[in-house]
Design a protein around this nucleic acid. Structure first.
Lengths: 220, 220
DNA sequence: TGTCAACAGATTGTCGACAATCTTGCGCCT
DNA sequence: AGGCGCAAGATTGTCGACAATCTGTTGACA
């Protein structure tokens, strides 16, 4: 009754959204606080919204479920998971360890002569963003720093998990208004420490960075 | 041409396997080394094997992909991920942090008066298994210990991730023959330390436990 | 009026069919 | 003989349809 031909007319060479893309889109919206915790994710609604069949939506929800941002109850459907402040604090406790490990591993790899141009670029971008004072610019630079560190650390399992945890951290920072831009300088310093190959120091700095966010969140 | 009626005849009150169960089954087989790294997971084959439609299999593969044990390439299908020894070592480096955090958190909760009967039971079971010297018994007890610790730690995100990493650790231990039963005593000690609420000590013991496995793996 | 059962609507679970894409082997041209 | 299309087979991607399950509401009965 709504779409007799979903994607035929003017969509000759469309790149195919596919489940992965939709999941990514939803994750981005989640990070931006688009969805209310507890909100039901009805498959049919999402079908209309993204113009695809239910199977696609289903796979996207499955992925979201694996990321832990959506809960799926049999025959009851999916809904956005509600995260309490205590849980967010616990997640940051975990993040502290993970980010520390990423930085330590990356620093070691740099010492071993790994390519680090991406990291240098990210650091430059961070420094630049601290001068323009544009939140979007800062967030992009921050993402690039994390990506560069993960790339250098080259630990598949760790990267996979960081990717998952990142979503939760973003949600927590948004949900509890614990987002303080202006950490650019601190992050740039972490990057430079990694670049210098000081693994112990890089780990300490990284953990301190996350710990401070956590303590700030705990005080609210 | 193969199954005109997949599950109608004598299957009046079957409990419905569903994707989650199939994914769990495959994970168990993976942990037992049933699949060869790189092996292709053709959907149609799995359909025949489990007697369900492709959608179910697809969702199961999706979940396996989220667990990081299966890679899915668009239009190319899914295959079992190959894990090198270095990657297994890196995963154990990560596990060291995670297990340490679980034990520390659990110990704190016990101090705060959390119910710990399940933990006591698991410890008893471990001690019993060390006397019978039955590998299956030991593994079951070990799993129960981890489950009890996770339950007490009560950190949703951490538990979710531990669950994912556990599969990799099991695969690594199986794949590299690094499986040494007889750690029952050591694990029981960790459990008792948690039970006593000594969080720092519990974390140290847990990390030492994983570290030793990692070092053993590195020496091969 | 309160409780419970049955019904209608909404939503999820699963399947079969067809389209799109990749792979492979064969034949043709140089 | 060697390389290059091209067709046939294999496999994945997506959709629509129907079955199963849940939920809320209405109405009958005590």
């Amino acid at each position: 009754m709504l779409s007799p031909s979903p994607n035929t007319d003017f969509v000759v060479s469309r790149t195919k959204p596919a489940a992965a893309d939709i999941a990514r889109t939803i994750v981005e919206e989640l990070e931006a606080g688009e969805f209310v915790p507890g909100q039901r994710m009805v498959e049919a609604d999402l079908c209309l919204r993204f113009g695809v069949g239910r199977q696609i939506i289903r796979e996207a929800l499955q992925r979201l479920n694996a990321y832990g941002v959506v809960a799926i109850e049999p025959n009851r459907g999916a809904h956005i998971i509600h995260v309490t402040r205590d849980e967010a604090v616990m997640t940051l406790e975990l993040t502290e360890l993970l980010f520390g490990l990423v930085s330590r591993s990356a620093a070691r790899r740099v010492s071993a002569g790994c390519d680090s141009t991406r990291l240098s670029d990210a650091i430059s971008e961070l420094v630049a963003s601290s001068e323009t004072d544009d939140p979007a610019h800062y967030m992009r630079a921050r993402r690039h720093l994390f990506a560069a560190l993960s790339l250098i650390a080259d630990n598949p399992e760790l990267n996979r998990i960081m990717e998952q945890v990142r979503v939760h951290v973003m949600r927590a920072q948004f949900g509890f208004a614990a987002f303080r831009s202006g950490h650019a300088q601190e992050l740039a310093e972490i990057g430079q420490t990694v670049l210098a190959g000081k693994s112990e120091e890089a780990e300490d700095l990284s953990r301190a960075y996350v710990r401070r966010i956590r303590e700030f969140l705990q005080q609210i």
